[in-house]
Design a protein around this nucleic acid. Structure first.
Lengths: 365, 365
DNA sequence: GCTTTTAATGAATCGTTCG
DNA sequence: TCGAACGATTCATTAAAAG
């Protein structure tokens, strides 16, 4: 146990660069940092139902330009590196707005990148204007303080167990922090704009620290890092600029009870079969655009398009849409399972395209 | 069709920075780039059974330090930006070794990031030493040439169809390029170390280009970009430093047959349909002055005037204006699509007036 | 009490055309 | 070039309200 025990399990209020400068060097086992993302939002965004999106437009996320953001990033990373033990590791989380600048800064400051981890959100906010891909993930970078030191903590076996006996991969599928876990203020609104789910911190802390280790979070916010650290028997140092958030975090953590590790194992992953979009059969070449599909009798035919739609001529004119939509339309039925309705001739046999879906599932195992 | 047709559908051998300098500026619709990853492997890597992993250790992947890699990256990105049309977009792909430096360079060169995309590999190479998470993904960055230009190509509807009616997300699950698709040399070994799956290029090209567009790949390698571009009715310019790889790509692409044009046209977006002024419905008798329109619930009503305006009594007095203006006002919303907001009773059903617009469009064919 | 509908919301760099 | 007008656009969850 280090002697600086007095500093741990506390939330310090102030600028993280200043406060880290006061901490003894080489005293921290792991850093988790969720800094401002520098979102650069232009105007208000409305949903199709005309409601306004509650965006992150706080002052703490505003930077004049990339150079200002880089200066800030390098300053706190440098301070964090001094405080880390030689065998320590750091986690940072960000989106495409800032994560490339953080990754570059980490490499320039001689951190050694171990992995980039993708947090796949099961329930992200959609892209309301249809102008981009749904931004459905955030990126974490996990890095060692030094290239040379190879004795950093990585609880390989524990993570493998968490993943049902398979090596934990670099993509983690987890829901957003919503519902009862999301801290609310008096009026029922979210108390902090960017509260992270505890499951995310659980996995980072479980992977890269041991019970009794000291974990530093320089952008403590609502205190998720502290809550999970306490629950998993780790110590923590939180730094937060906003006194109200710091107080919120203190109260939250005070209510947390440390638990034996076996009681906090996450829910096992769902075993359901993965959904296979029809389009992937085309993208991977199992089906060719222009191919002809037919109903079980062979009387109704339709043509496969490159975008995964079918086209055919129905009683009321041209039809184009998904395998399910066109299948329903040609039958005059309210709905249709296109996977079992549409068939393709293969080796002289007429097989449902569900057969191709099974092949695809096997490939994607 | 542009006049520089002579340059497209060719594989040029040489340094991509030199060759791009010879191309006319603003002549390319989309760039796809899979540059060297700067892997920095310390020594040979062995599997648990002591077999050696066939890692990427070619000379083209060796850079002395980050500064050298950055200089190279900025030089080819700058050249690519000059060659791009003002509304063009660029895709780059990389791993954590180099993608942060590419993202930073893109931002510094005033590209405007649109998405980062995660390619989740269904069958990644495991981590043999158990010292890190299985590196199971690579990252693509999709960026517009300019922040201002918002008319870049994004075939939203086509991508949505490829994903069975749901918005395409920023995480794509696709298998590695293996089996018959993987090009082999005479002795049965892989002909190129980093051949990308055609399914990956299919999605990029389908999303961000139209048939006939020119797609430039400055690190052509085995020519996956060219093969998929040709198949989807796009033109391409490939640049490859290694004459043997260029020849491999030429032969590969020569065997590709373009799909029929009708099969590769993306599903058209609604905004590309001809504009119908509301007043035409009245002029042509589809709607009669004096008719009553209502909101979806039927609670709010308005009266159609002969000049194509609506009039109603709102909470703050009489309102009169376009279907959009009045719709916004009665909802207290900043804007409103009057076509979908206002309904009319027809054969006992309440239908949006967009239904009448569809009839009008059909008549005007 | 139970089921069905409706409403709310999440780190968002989210438009195009015409006069 | 700029302002005004047109009009295109959402998924998974949770929770409250309605039946």
């Amino acid at each position: 146990m280090p002697k600086d025990i007095g500093l741990s399990d506390r939330v310090l209020v102030g600028d993280c660069i200043d406060i880290m400068a006061e901490l003894p060097s080489g005293s921290v086992d792991m850093v988790f940092a969720d800094p401002p993302y520098n979102l650069q939002l232009a105007g208000a965004l409305h949903r199709p139902d005309n409601s306004k999106v509650d965006a992150v437009d706080d002052d703490w996320d505003k930077f004049e330009d990339f150079a200002t953001y880089d200066t800030f990033t390098r300053a706190w990373l440098k301070a964090a590196r001094r405080v880390l033990k030689p065998d320590g590791t750091i986690w940072v989380i960000g989106s495409y707005h800032n994560v490339f600048r953080m990754g570059t800064a980490l490499q320039d400051l001689h951190f050694w990148l171990l992995n980039d981890i993708v947090w796949r959100k099961t329930n992200p906010m959609p892209n309301f204007r249809g102008k981009r891909f749904t931004n459905a993930h955030e990126t974490l970078i996990w890095a060692a303080r030094d290239r040379r030191r190879r004795s950093y903590t990585f609880n390989y076996e524990a993570l493998k167990e968490l993943n049902e006996g398979l090596q934990m991969r670099s993509d983690w599928t987890l829901p957003l922090c919503t519902g009862a876990e999301r801290l609310k203020n008096g009026s029922g609104k979210k108390a902090h704009p960017t509260q992270k789910p505890e499951a995310l911190l659980f996995r980072c802390i479980m992977a890269a620290s041991n019970p009794g280790d000291v974990i530093l979070d320089p952008f403590f916010g609502s205190g998720t890092t502290g809550a999970v650290a306490k629950r998993l028997g780790r110590r923590f140092i939180g730094i937060e600029r906003d006194a109200d958030y710091a107080e919120l975090a203190r109260k939250r953590i005070a209510a947390v009870r440390p638990l034996p590790a076996e009681d906090v194992a996450p829910k096992p992953a769902r075993r359901s079969e993965p959904r296979i979009p029809f389009g992937i059969l085309i993208e991977t070449g199992l089906l060719t655009p222009g191919a002809t599909l037919a109903d079980p009798s062979g009387r109704i035919q339709a043509r496969v398009k490159a975008d995964g739609t079918l086209s055919t001529t129905g009683p009321e004119g041209d039809l184009r849409g998904s395998i399910h939509q066109v299948g329903a339309a040609v039958q005059g039925a309210p709905s249709c399972n296109g996977w079992t309705f549409w068939h393709i001739d293969f080796d002289g046999k007429r097989l449902p395209i569900d057969h191709l879906r099974q092949q695809m599932r096997a490939r994607m195992q």
